[in-house]
């Protein structure tokens, strides 16, 4: 089983929203910069991996009930975006990995956890 904590380690990631439960299981993933596609295709409880950092990412995420947001490519959302995520209990993990690298690492850890 891959937890949020395990995923964060695999990504050399940093939790931008402190004091959140990192024992949540990650079993579904969705990578996109298009919130339109997130709204159309994501399954609730997924991890959303994205390079977008605006407030609409958090609003879309809370609406479709994602388990956590992973922000790739070393980007940092503004304070107000992080505050909104904390308010709605959506963890944000930042990683320096590119989208491809992040997906590849997470996929590797996920498969390893299932073996």
């Amino acid at each position: 089983m891959l937890t949020l904590k395990g995923m964060m380690t695999a990504l050399d990631g940093e939790l931008l929203t402190p004091e959140m439960n990192l024992e949540t299981e990650c079993a579904k993933f969705f990578a996109s910069d298009l919130m339109s596609d997130v709204l159309a295709f994501i399954q609730p409880g997924s991890i959303l991996m994205t390079g977008l950092v605006n407030t609409h990412v958090v609003r879309t995420a809370r609406l479709v009930e994602v388990a956590a947001i992973v922000i790739v490519q070393g980007k940092r959302p503004e304070r107000k975006v992080i505050d909104e995520a904390r308010e709605h209990n959506v963890p944000i993990i930042a990683t320096g990995c590119s989208m491809f690298e992040a997906c590849s690492r997470v996929s590797g850890s996920f498969l390893k956890g299932r073996r």
Binding site: D33, L34, M35, S36, D37, V38, L39, A40, L52, N54, H56, V57, T60
Partner: peptide, 10 residues
Amino acid sequence: LGFGAGMGLA
């Protein structure tokens, strides 16, 4: 902003 991909109405 991440919208306008032409998926909305569908």
